[in-house]
């Protein structure tokens, strides 16, 4: 199907270049060879079905395999039992029965709060540091060995340091999130700043822009996509680390809740917890992707 020709804007008699086409790809279902005419609604239904069917099949297949495995083992509940348990659990997610027995909603919120604090601090420290490292090679060389050694360390290894320094479980967990979320932030920001095209910097040099103008008009907008990629990775790592560190620190939190249910031998709740962690992690990533696309100059 041909896209309609747009009128050429004639700017002046000597200037008659067509405006660059920036048509978005038309949302048209793939052409089908059909024996008889089909209405647009039917075509649309086919397209929707075509998009939905594969994921649905995947989920059904996954549930089948799960049910099969559950049949052969003693302790693992199948999808049916888990579903019943989940309905019960989610009917009252915000109850309070003492410090160690709270609804799953409270646990989830507590985990999210820790991640938000750790992640926020990592962004506050990591992004400016990344900018400095990307802009000044001296600084980058100074920090490079430290980053290379500390970055591969498992988040949980930092937990004892946090406990020793803060002498409390909650700040230690936040510290763990902070330290594992900061590396992708620093590295990606620095990469973004270092890979600002030389052409843009040449423009800045010819104009003799001040360092501040270079930062606000060139470095910042050019590296925003990298910064947000770093933030996305950080958030993913933070969410991975929080479950593990809460298992060790206890208190309130989805990780602690999961471990607690293991002690109660409530396998349904453990499976539900895994589901919650997965869904929340996915939503966090989708949210960050949305934000990243919103601020990426390339997608405007």
């Amino acid at each position: 199907m041909a896209t309609p020709l747009r009128p050429v804007k004639v700017l002046s008699p000597s200037v008659a270049e067509p405006v660059a086409a920036n048509d978005s790809p038309a949302r048209i279902p793939p052409p089908l060879v059909l024996p008889h005419p089909v209405s647009a609604a039917a075509l649309h239904a086919r397209a929707v079905l075509g998009a939905l069917l594969p994921p649905l099949l995947g989920i059904v297949g996954f549930l089948l395999v799960w049910a099969l495995i559950a049949r052969t083992t003693h302790y693992l509940p199948g999808p049916d039992k888990t579903f019943v348990s989940a309905v019960q659990l989610f009917s009252d997610p915000f109850y309070q029965r003492g410090p160690n027995d709270q609804g799953v909603g409270w646990n989830l919120l507590a985990s999210l709060e820790r991640v938000a604090k750790g992640f926020g601090m990592a962004a506050l420290v990591g992004i400016p540091l990344g900018f400095a490292l990307g802009r000044f090679t001296m600084l980058s060389s100074a920090f490079q060995p430290i980053i290379s050694v500390l970055r591969p360390v498992s988040p949980l290894a930092w937990l004892p340091i946090g406990l020793a320094v803060f002498e409390a479980a909650n700040p230690a967990a936040i510290f763990t999130i902070f330290i594992c979320a900061i590396w992708p932030m620093i590295i990606n920001t620095a990469l973004g700043v270092a890979s600002v095209p030389q052409d843009y910097l040449n423009v800045a040099r010819v104009l003799r822009l001040s360092e501040w103008k270079v930062f606000t008009h060139i470095l910042l907008p050019a590296s925003v996509p990298y910064v947000l990629t770093g933030a996305k990775l950080s958030l993913g790592v933070a969410w991975l680390a929080i479950v593990a560190s809460e298992m060790l620190t206890g208190g309130v939190g989805i990780g602690f809740w999961l471990w607690d249910e293991w002690n109660n031998l409530n396998m349904e709740h453990i499976l539900i917890a895994i589901g919650i962690v997965g869904v929340v992690g996915m939503l966090l990533e989708k949210g960050m992707t949305l934000i990243a696309n919103r601020f990426d100059y390339r997608s405007r």
């Binding site: 843009y200 423009v203 010819v206 907008p221």
Partner: peptide, 19 residues
């Protein structure tokens, strides 16, 4: 050193894409 008194038109235009 560079200076605005010697303006350059670059081959690949070098416009800032966010402006």
């Amino acid at each position: 050193g560079p200076s605005p008194e010697r303006a350059v038109v670059f081959q690949n235009h070098s416009l800032l894409p966010w402006l």
